[in-house]
Every structure is written in C-alpha cells, then in structure tokens.
Amino acid sequence: MADKKKSLGREFAKGIIVENPVLRLVLGTCPTLAVSTSVVNAIGMGLSAMIVLVCSNIVISCLRKIIPSKVRIPAYIVIIASFVTIVQMIVKAFVPALDSALGVYLPLIVVNCIILGRAEAFAGKNSVIASAVDGLGMGIGFTVALCCMATVREILGAGTFLADAQNLLVLFGENTLGGFNGFTVIKDSSMLKPITILIMAPGGFFTFGILMACANKLAESKGKPKAELKGCEACPMAKNCALIAKGESCSEKEDKEAAKV
C-alpha cells in the first residue's frame, strides 16, 4: 500500500519537474509561445489544458480495454475534442474575458501534443487513478512552465505583473480581492521603459530559448540529458505515423528519403 502511494506521488511529481512537458519533453510549444504574454492568460490556458488533460486521461483510461487499438487515435481525438469544447463553452459562459484573450488558442488545445501524447503514452496503458494523477502532474507542469515564461515576459515586456487579474477572478464574483487588477512594476513614464519586444512574437522565441537553456543547465547539474526536439521522434504523432505506415517509424522514413536523395 505504502509502495503504491509512493509511486503515485512519483507519477505526480515527475510531470512538474523531471518530465516537465514544456521544458523537458518540448511538447505544446505553440500555446506556450502564444499565450505567455501575460501571467493571467498563462494561468487561464494552463488550467484549461489541465482540466482537459485530467478528464481525457480518466475517460481514456476507463475505456482502454474497450477501444480497439486500430481506431484508438480517432477515438482519443474525439474524446479530447469533446472535453475541449466543453471547457470552451464553460469559459465562454463564466470567464468571457479569458475567452476573448485566448482566442483561437483555446479550441486549439485539441491539437496540443501534450494531451494526445499523454493519452497515447500513459492513459492508454495505465489504471484510472494513475492516469488521473499523471494528467494532474503534467497539467501543473504545463501551467508552471507557462507561468515562468509569462512572468518574465510580462514584467520585462509590459512592466506589469498579473495585469487584468479580474479576467480570471470574475469566476469568484465581481471585485474579488478588492478589485485587484495586477501591479505596475515599471511605470511607462519613468526613466526605465519596458522592453516591448519581449511580449511581441520574437520575444516569445527568445524567452523560451533562454528558459530552455536554464532548464538544460539545471538538468545537467543533476546528470540528466539535455532536452531535445528530435524531429518527429519527440512528436507523439510519430507513433501514429508508424501505425499508419504499417510498422515503419517516422524517422526511418525520413532516413530512407534522405538516402534516396
């Protein structure tokens, strides 16, 4: 029993640091770069993705013995897409400002590789409780990584921290926390000006690169390998490619292609 508890704890913790989906597994880069312009957006995105991840992990794990392996990818996609749509409708109804802030990136959680990747790599093979815990850990890891990015970008790029916090706090009623709406860290009129480019597109790539370098350094000091994006190996679809191509893995195909040329 104690052993089981310990392993569940490990499942949970691994998603946050050792196997952080964004900084270690390099998954879900698109939303990471796109919504990390403000901490509030990052938290909103992280929480939405986490809810979808936990729910879809639970359902997929429940159905893992029923779903034939031939159609498992379409089945996973349907399940994930339903949860995304449900989350989207709930956000629209109760946190409307967040919906307009996240825009198209909210429905695009469907194609977030973290979710399909976890379904394929974990939930399809493990028990319901373990899958739920895995989803929760990965979701928190995603949120934490997003918040790290967003904190750097918002403070340095816009000179604010937690700006528009009411967008999220509206969930708990109007004017929660006395209408708290974020701090101004750098006043625009002072000698110091925010580095605007950091919240624009190039700043996203740049911050992510630096953060990744820090994560690598940290991993190195612990004797772990660097995070690497190995073409399609890192992409969870690689496994599906293999399935589709009847046993040929994605990288093999590329090698063949390269050999031909």
């Binding site: 390099v26 190039p202 790539f205 740049f206 690169g209 630096i210 990744m212 370098a213 660097k226 690497e228």
Partner: peptide
C-alpha cells in the same frame, strides 16, 4: 556551451521573427 542544442535554435528563430516584424 550554455546555448547548445535547442536554445540557440529558438534564439535564431527569434531573430528571424524580428526580421518579419
């Protein structure tokens, strides 16, 4: 050494993105 691997690729992408701005 600090930037080898993915970090430098991302920073390069950032500079390409600046040019698109």
């Amino acid at each position: 050494k600090f930037l080898q691997g993915l970090p430098i690729v991302l920073i390069a992408a950032s500079i390409v993105s600046v040019s698109f701005m």
